[in-house]
Design a protein around this nucleic acid. Sequence first.
RNA 1: GGAGAGGUGGCAGAGUGGUAAUGCAGCGGAUUGCUAAUCCGUAGUCGCCUAAAAGCGGCUCCCGAGUUCGAGUCUCGGUCUCUCCGCCA
Length: 424
Amino acid sequence: MLQLSYIREHKDEIIDRLKIRNFDGEKVINEIVTLDERRRKSQTEADAKQAELNKVSKEIGVAFKSGDQEKAQALKAKTGKLKSSAKELFDVVSQTESQINTLLLSVPNVPNPEVPKGKSDEDNEVLEEFGEKPKLEADAMPHWDLAKEYDIIDFERGVKVSGSGFPIYTGKGARLQRALITFFLDEAEKAGYKEMMPPLVVNEASGTATGQLPDKEGQMYHIPEEDLYLIPTAEVPITNIYRDELLRKEDLPIMMCGYTPCFRREAGSYGKDVRGLNRLHQFDKVEIVQITQPDDSYDTLNQMVEHVKSLLKKLELNFRTVKLCGGDLGFTSALTFDMEVYSAAQERWLEVSSISNFETYQANRLKCRFKDENNKTRLVHTLNGSALALPRILASLIENNQTPEGIKIPDVLVPYTGFNMITK
RNA sequence: GGAGAGGUGGCAGAGUGGUAAUGCAGCGGAUUGCUAAUCCGUAGUCGCCUAAAAGCGGCUCCCGAGUUCGAGUCUCGGUCUCUCCGCCA
């Protein structure tokens, strides 16, 4: 959520920059500014009335104590009118406040100036490509066929048990999943991230603070009896660990990582996008999260990108780094880099990581602040990234490493899997 | 699920209707001839005034209503935490 004071002072700039993400903010921003003025005016008046009322109350107290009943009664008579006019003004304040709040929730983050314009993922800017696209035999299979051939994922029985989008990893497939999770966590810990095992369901306040609510309400599974949501990413519970907290500057940066399953309804998805492991209702992911001082956050963003790159290199995958254009940028993000690996058998790039700086957008909703060197209370910056999402990594690993003898496991994973080849 | 207790500042912790004690930490200042001590100030938030500070005012003792001239304190509703019982991996 954008800060009101920031909107007040940078109205036109915000409207302008929101255009980069194709968000027409002119009307809503102007409305916010107007309401804000009304609120402040009402508050000033209400405060004055209340101050007067408080003064009279004190005088009444003094009068009672000194035994001057008559004076006390006379003063009491004065309070009625003051009270009602103060209440009226305070009602305006709180009404306006809640209107402002509703509007603020509907405004996405302001993109960083370096975010390119664009409509969709096709307009994203490719920054670099690492490695060579593997050349596969003519009879190479996509991962959904390989999964069946080598008996490592059972999609059909997953449908029976839960529905489509809920695969069952079996035997060496399950072991490979577990190997990847452990490998990613080990690497994150080596890089300084503290491992967290958070709850997999969150309350409404948490969903709102990181920005999934109300924007993406329909994307999350909801448990009505308890009014809880299944997490769509570990970002939600992990970032919310520090909700409503006032940190000391030496606490920063806070580096956290965590493995969780992620649950997404993915309503409206179809076709080749959802084939096999490409898009699931439940998938596994290791997430890295950082809470930083504002001045450090863009260095941190780069550092996180480098971390993810190093993972992909160790897995011997070829990949590219993409800077998201305005149209593809998430609601809460100021700047996002995606990492995509090439699936040779599907002949397409698959997003395996998304690394974002939210600046103060989440922090403002989280009310996560710190005391800076001047002892001033300021909002922190929050960042997160997938390091990494498993299904598409698994898909490209098995597609790109298929050989006539079987599926070769990258060397770095062998200590985790205990085998270096998946055979029939 | 049943019964009881509780929620006060960054943290700890008093406070039974009339200006929210005190301790610790952090920050600022003063003082003292050495890694330190002592003293003073210092809360979060919103608004007014400012170039900025200072200053002034409102709100804030889990949340929301109510009683009252006045509520941390009394009443009602909600919520969360803890303890015990029950159930249970």
